[in-house]
Structures are given as C-alpha cells and as structure tokens.
Design a binder for these strands. Structure first.
Lengths: 222, 222
DNA sequence: GGTTGTGAACAAATTCACAGCG
DNA sequence: CGCTGTGAATTTGTTCACAACC
C-alpha cells in the first residue's frame, strides 16, 4: 500500500490532464479504463500513469483497469475540486475579458466571482455576465466566497501592486499572467503563465530540429 | 569548459525568464549583473542561475558578474530569437482576439502574421490591426514567412483538425490553448497552455496549506 | 575581495520489469 | 491471462561548496 500522502509535484501537474481525459472517456460511455489507454489519451507513458495514480491510492483492479467515474471522483477530491472555489479576475483589458469570456474556468469548477479594474472607465461594463467592479471592492468580493483564487491579468507595471492588494484582501492563491516575478508572503501561492515565454521555448527547439525531437511532441499515431 | 551543446530542458524553460529580467535590468541602466542579483530578480536560486548560464558558455567575469547586454544577446541567439519568427493565430474568438491584442507577442519578437477563422462571419473583421482571414489561406500565410508558429485558440472540438491543417500548411511548432492532447507527426513540436489546469493545480496546493508551502511561491522579501 | 564555473553530493522524476492479484 | 502496483535502476535536475580566476 502506497496511498500515503505527499504527492510529487510532477504528479500533481498531471492530475488535471488525467481528470479531463477521464471526463471525456465518461462522456463517450467508457466505464473502465486501463493505464495503457489512459496514457495514450493523455499523451504520456503507461508506467507513469500507474505510478501517478498509485500516489492517490489503490483504485484500480488488476486484470481489469480503473473505474472511470470512481477514479475521476477520487481525483477531484484530491485536487480539492469538491470544495467551493471561485475566481476573481483583476484587469478588464483584453486578456481579462478573454479569460472571463473563455468558458473553461466556470465549466471546470471555477465560477467567476467578479472582474475588477482600476480604470473608472471600465467599471460598470458587463463582461461575461458580470459587471466590472472597482479594485477597491476586492476585500468585499473575497469575503463573499471561500478559497478565492486571484487572477492577475494586468499590465506588468501594476501587477505587483495588484498582487499586494489581493493578498491584503485575503487571497491565498494567485494565477499570474503578467510577465513579472511577483513577491508575496510565503503562505501565498503563485503560479505564472507567460505566453511569450512559451513561444520562446518553442523557438529554441524549432531552430535545432531537423530530426532531433526534444521529447515534447505528443505520441504520433494517425 | 562546459559550453558544449545539449542544454537541459529545465534550463531552456528558464532562459526566457532570465532574458526578460536582463531586458528590465538594461532598461534600468544596469550594465553588469551578478548571478546572485539575477537570481533574486528572476525568483530562483543563484547556483541554478550559474549552472544554467554555464550551459550557454562562459560569458561571465569572475569577481565581476555578467555583462547584461552581452549575456542577453547570447541568450537571444541561443533561443533563436535573432532569426525571423512569426505567429499565426487560429481562432478569432475571445481567446484568439485577446492573444492578438495582447501586445506581448509582437513586443517580444513574435509579430502576428495573421489571424484566421473558419467562421465566415468573423472573416474580414480587423483585430489588432490585422484582418481576419479564412482558414483556407493557411498555406499561403505560412509560405509568407519562415519559422511560423501556429497558435491554436479554438474550441476543443476542432483543435485537432486545426492542428492537422497547420501541419499540412508547413507549420513545425504549435502552441495549443485548447484543452486537448494534439496528435502530430514527430517532427512537429507542441506546447500546451491549459488555463483551467493551472487553477486546478493551485486548488490542490491551496487546500493543504496551513503552513506547508509547496516550494512554488516566489522568494519573500519586503 | 568578490564572483564565476563546476565537480561531487543529493533529490526528484522517469522508466523498467516483474511479482501479485483478480 | 491481463493489468495493476511497486521496488530497483536509471536519468534528470538541484544544491552545495570550493578551486580558479579577475
């Protein structure tokens, strides 16, 4: 038995992928899935899938595979998705609007609590069904829900001050889209998504590939 | 001497962060920087910075540090940013529009060559200064430039067919925002950005933090 | 003195390969 | 027999600590 706690970081990063894959399989009417098949759909290798899942517990059946619904449930629970979560987007510019309109947050369990902006001209507009509120409302907004995640979708220049306000308002997790390293207290969690960085990484591997593939492409089957 | 080729994947992923940090330092008039200072600004540890930079070559001066401009230049070169690059965005929905309007691509060396969409209603609109063109134009668009990177900003359902068309049109690198695992030939490179995934990862760590910090937060100094 | 560059020690992650179980 | 779960082997990445050098 190895269901004990402390799940490796690399595993945690893959759980959402497995979860999405399982949801798709369930929609297709699949009720049982092998590590081999799950690996194929998730674009990883089967041994890795088994090792990853073993960190959650022994939810498979030898000779059979994993029950899709049960595994998905256990995974959701492990990811904390069974608890209430919400998102507040700071910055109603292009990116903030896109994130609000992008259905993927709400549909995957992260309802958008509010969008705020410091520009009075933007306050009052309605984006994705929610009215843009002033940044000053942050403490009140965060108090409205538990476990609220702050999304920083502002220009780089103001990102740090926005982060400070989020922390002050009680936010403990931040998803940062601004190309800046945020400084926050130890107990606050930050993850960064930098779009230009991703392009630059692609650029690196692109130039040195005539045949060499830097183990990043998805399994090739047609 | 350790300037020899084959840069570790983990290092490559950090180079863009160093590069951005160096650019900021240069703007602030800094001409020389130590690994210690660069590490602080980039939010990593100094030994790691030195190890990372050593993979590029010996560009530092003992007792002094690194020449900001020179190091930035070497890094750009290594990342292939001195060569012509361009981006074609597929999908003129919310995300596609946001990505086009988001200045970060163009300003960091990835001009937007075109935005395409399969919806005739969207074709012809002007987004971020470029007219939306029909997907059928992809081969012509890709032929207009070298090393074009395709950005998939479509709903999940059509992402794979879009990827197929990009590959057919000659694209060798794809940045995928759709929550799907794309299947492409081995020589094509794919990187995925999944926004909901990021939230789910935050969610995982959020629930189990009362004091424990999962080594993800940025250095805390105030 | 100060800072790089790097071997060596350590830690994390991946992959192998197979025993164990249904 | 088939597939999971996992120890052991391997690979990759991080950190330490210091000699080399300006």
């Amino acid at each position: 038995m190895a269901s004990s706690r402390r799940i490796p970081e690399a595993t945690v990063a893959r759980l959402p992928v497995y979860l999405r894959t399982l949801a798709e399989a369930a929609e297709d009417g699949v009720s049982t899935i092998s590590s081999e098949r799950l690996a194929e759909l998730a674009g990883v290798n089967a041994a890795k899938v088994r090792k990853d899942l073993s960190h959650l517990g022994s939810y498979g059946t030898r000779g059979v595979g994993y029950d899709v619904d049960y595994l998905a449930y256990q995974m959701s629970r492990e990811l904390g998705l069974t608890e209430e979560r919400a998102v507040v987007i700071v910055g109603a510019g292009n990116l903030g609007q896109a994130l609000a309109n992008y259905g993927g947050f709400s549909s995957r369990g992260f309802p958008i609590l509010a969008v705020v902006d410091s520009d009075p001209a933007k306050v009052g507009r309605v984006i994705a069904g929610v009215r843009v509120r002033p940044v000053e409302d942050l403490p009140a907004i965060v108090a409205e829900a538990v476990n609220t995640i702050g999304v920083v979708a502002t220009p780089a220049g103001v990102a740090q001050s926005v982060a400070d306000r989020l922390v002050e308002a009680g936010v403990r997790s931040i998803l940062n889209f601004a190309p800046v390293v945020l400084t926050v207290p130890d107990e606050v969690l930050v993850r960064k998504v930098d779009l230009a960085t991703e392009l630059q990484i692609l650029s690196f591997y692109q130039q040195r590939s005539s045949r060499r593939s830097p183990r990043r492409s998805s399994a090739g089957a047609a």
